[in-house]
């Protein structure tokens, strides 16, 4: 990287002569060392998964959750500086609850992402703060049914439309990813962290169209992709954490929950099996991809 040490990279909110904000780029570096996180938007739900490197034998097994619930229907997973991720989640929760206080209804995943994008971006504007050292994946299921307004106690008029519009298609799965710059996009499949290149390559092979893979298949693919992305740092052990949000008639009833242990273990078993099968061609692909990055 040129112009490091020229003084334009010492403070946030300062442009270098060629128009870059170095502090944001350095924050991205913090993300690139984090455990791989992926999100998959399936036709009937969203899966979030993260690779947690076991840094010490003394860590309690299965504790130290990294995927957080923001509102009933939204989950967030971050890669990068873990405490920054917690700050991000705290803000997401505040946004979701203040939306509820104002509109008496759950926030849509798109609006939540928009607000968080604005929040993260604000941390690139001032020299008194530093940017977030995380890239966060936000997964949600926006209700497809008419849900009661918060605090609603009756049913409204029994005759006439009662202000309700029927037969409108709405809601569904949503997946967004926010970067340290505050930039965010909607995704069919998102990946960040150390193994993102390998993970992205795998995500691109999936059919994530509205008629594509189901949530349950998504869970298995997410597990497999984390295992594939981990290949490079094989020596380190890791734990897989996964959550999902299904449609209202699916297994989680529109709520963000941890993937049940049995299903997760089954997905891990399949992931390990598939790795044993095609170890060699996996390696080749990755070396090609890695060059593209820098």
């Amino acid at each position: 990287m040129t112009s490091i040490g020229t003084g334009y990279d010492l403070s946030n909110s300062v442009f270098s002569p060629d128009g870059r904000n170095f502090q944001v780029e350095y924050a991205v570096k913090a993300v690139e060392n984090g455990g791989t996180a992926v999100g998959i938007r399936c036709k009937d739900g969203v899966v979030l998964a993260i690779e947690k490197i076991i840094t010490s034998k003394l860590l309690k097994v299965g504790a130290n959750k990294r995927i957080s619930t923001v509102d009933r229907h939204v989950g967030v997973v971050s890669s990068g500086l873990v405490p920054d991720g917690r700050h991000f989640v705290a803000r997401a929760r505040d946004e979701a609850s203040s939306w509820r206080k104002f509109y008496k209804a759950p926030i849509s995943t798109a609006m939540l992402s928009n607000r968080l994008g604005a929040y993260v971006q604000a941390y690139t504007l001032y020299s008194s703060v530093r940017p977030f050292g995380v890239t966060s994946i936000i997964g949600g299921w926006d209700s497809e049914a008419d849900i009661p307004v918060d605090g609603q106690v009756g049913n409204g008029p029994q005759v006439g439309a009662g202000g309700k519009v029927t037969d409108v298609k709405k809601g569904g799965p949503a997946l967004y990813m926010i970067e340290p710059s505050g930039q965010y996009w909607g995704y069919y499949g998102a990946a960040t962290g150390k193994g993102r290149q390998a993970a992205k390559a795998e995500l691109e092979k999936l059919d994530l169209s509205p008629t594509g893979i189901s949530l349950e298949e998504g869970v298995k693919e997410a597990a497999r992709i984390i295992y594939v992305a981990h290949e490079d740092s094989k020596d380190k052990e890791f734990e897989l954490e996964m959550t999902w949000i299904s449609s209202l008639d699916g297994p989680t009833k529109g709520r963000h929950q941890e993937v049940p242990k049995e299903l997760r273990e089954e997905a891990e078993r399949l992931a390990k099996k598939s790795l044993e099968g095609d170890d060699d061609d996996e390696e080749e692909e990755k070396t090609g991809e890695e060059k593209m990055e820098e």
Partner: peptide, 20 residues
């Protein structure tokens, strides 16, 4: 006031479920 309290309990329930 009941509706207000219902929403209050609702948000409390959401907060409680941050921890599964």
């Amino acid at each position: 006031d009941m509706q207000y309290l219902d929403r209050l309990l609702n948000s409390l329930d959401i907060e409680e479920n941050y921890y599964p």
